[in-house]
Design a protein around this nucleic acid. Structure first.
Lengths: 121, 121, 121, 121
DNA sequence: GTGGTCTAGACCACC
DNA sequence: GTGGTCTAGACCACA
C-alpha cells in the first residue's frame, strides 16, 4: 500500500478503515484483521497499526475483546458517518466556499468539474 | 491572530497574504508590511513570518528590494489566482467529491449548505 | 456475563467466586461448578476459567479432587475474607484517601454518597 | 522516579501531571516541561512521555503550541477535577461500597482507618 | 494466537 | 530548541 507524505500514516490507515465501514465492507460486530496481519498486509510497522486501532477505539468506532481482537462497534457505521459528516460540513465546506468566493467560482463551475471528475474514479 | 493547529503557521500566514491580494487589498507593486511589523501584529516569531516571505517569493508572488522591503510582483494577482485555482481544482476538489460519495451527499445538499453558509460570512 | 476491559477476565471471575463464598452461596466443602460448565455459562474460554481455578487454589480457597472437581476448602470463607480485607485495607484504602484529599472530599461527602448508593444495590 | 508495575508508565505519568494540576503546582496557561526534559527527569523514554502528552491533550487538559511546547488549558484545573471526580464517584465508590458490604465494614471502620492513615502521608 | 507497552534510535517539520 | 512520526525489536499478560 502507498501512503501520501503529507498526512501521518496511522491516520491514513484510519481513513481506510472508515471507508471500509462506510462502504459496508466491514459491518458492526465484525472482527477486523489483527494488528500483525494488517501490518504485514500494508507493509507497515505493527506499532503504527496499533496507533490507528487506539485512535479509532477512542472514537468509539472499534472496540477490543481481550486476547481475541478488535471489532466494529454496534454503532460504528453511524459514528463514522457522523464523525466524517460533521468534519466535512463544519471544517471543509466553509473553507471550500471561501476559496470559491476568492477564486470567483460558483456552484455551476463546481458542477462541471463534478461531472468531469466523477467518471474517472 | 488565531491559528489552526493542523497546518503550519507560516502557511496560514501565506493564505492570509494571498487573500489580501485576491481581494485586492494589496495591489501589484505595493510594499507589504515588514517582517517585524507583521510579527508583532500577528504575535508570531519573526522567523516564522520570514518563512512565509521566502515561500511566497519562491512562488513569484512577492519580491524583495534589498534594504527596503517586500513588494507584490506585477503579476502577483494573476499568479496567486492561478496557484490557488490549480491547487483547488486538482487537489481539493477530487477529495471533496470522494467525501461526498462516501457520505452520500450530492450537489443539491452542497447547494443547501452553500446558501446557508454564504450569508454568515 | 459482561466483563470490564480494564481488568483480566480471570480475575473478574475470581471476584465473582469470592463473592459467592462471602455471601455464603457457596459453603466450605461445597463442590463448585466444573470448568466446562462455568465456561459455557459465562461465555468464556475454558482456559480462562481454568486460570481462575488455579489462582484460587493457589490462595488456598479452593482445592481439587482429581477426576471429581473443585471444592471450597474448609477455611475457604475465612481465607477469602482475610485476603480481601488485607487487600482492601492496605491497597485500596490508602489510594482512596489520597484521591479524596486531591479532590477535596471528606468523610461526610462519602457518607452522602453512601446513603445514595446503598439503596440502589 | 519509581513506577508501579501494574499500571502503564505513561498513565502513571499522567496521574502525576494531574496531581500537579490539582495541587496547583501547575496553573492554567503554564507551560509544562518539554518531552525531552521530562524524559530525562523521570528516566523514561521520550516516546513514553509523548504518549502521556497525547493522552492528556485528548482529554483537553493540556494543549500544544507548535514548536513551543505544551501548556495547561484554561479550564485544565476544572477538567482534571471533573474527570477524576466522576471517575472516583462512578467507578471507585460503588466498588468500595460493595467491598465494604461483603467484608462487613461500615463507615465508622473507614473513619478509624482514615484517622490512622492520614498522618502517615 | 491476541493486544499493550516500552526502549532505542532515527528523521522530519516547525518556531 | 520544540513536538510528531516511524521503525525495529523486545517482553509481557491474556485467551
Amino acid at each position: 500500500m502507498e501512503f501520501k507524505d503529507q498526512q501521518a500514516i496511522y491516520l491514513q490507515i484510519a481513513e481506510l478503515f472508515c471507508e471500509n465501514i462506510l462502504l459496508q465492507k466491514w459491518h458492526p460486530g465484525d472482527r477486523i484483521p489483527s494488528v500483525r496481519e494488517m501490518a504485514v498486509n500494508i507493509e507497515v510497522n505493527p506499532n503504527t497499526v496499533m496507533r490507528t486501532f487506539t485512535y479509532l477505539q477512542d472514537k468509539g468506532i472499534i472496540y477490543n475483546k481481550r486476547g481475541i481482537g478488535y471489532f466494529v462497534t454496534d454503532d460504528g457505521l453511524e459514528r463514522t458517518r457522523t464523525l466524517r459528516r460533521d468534519q466535512f460540513i463544519n471544517q471543509e465546506l466553509p473553507h471550500i466556499f471561501k476559496q470559491m468566493e476568492l477564486l470567483g467560482l460558483n456552484l455551476d463551475d463546481l458542477k462541471n468539474y463534478y461531472t468531469e471528475h466523477k467518471p474517472n474514479e
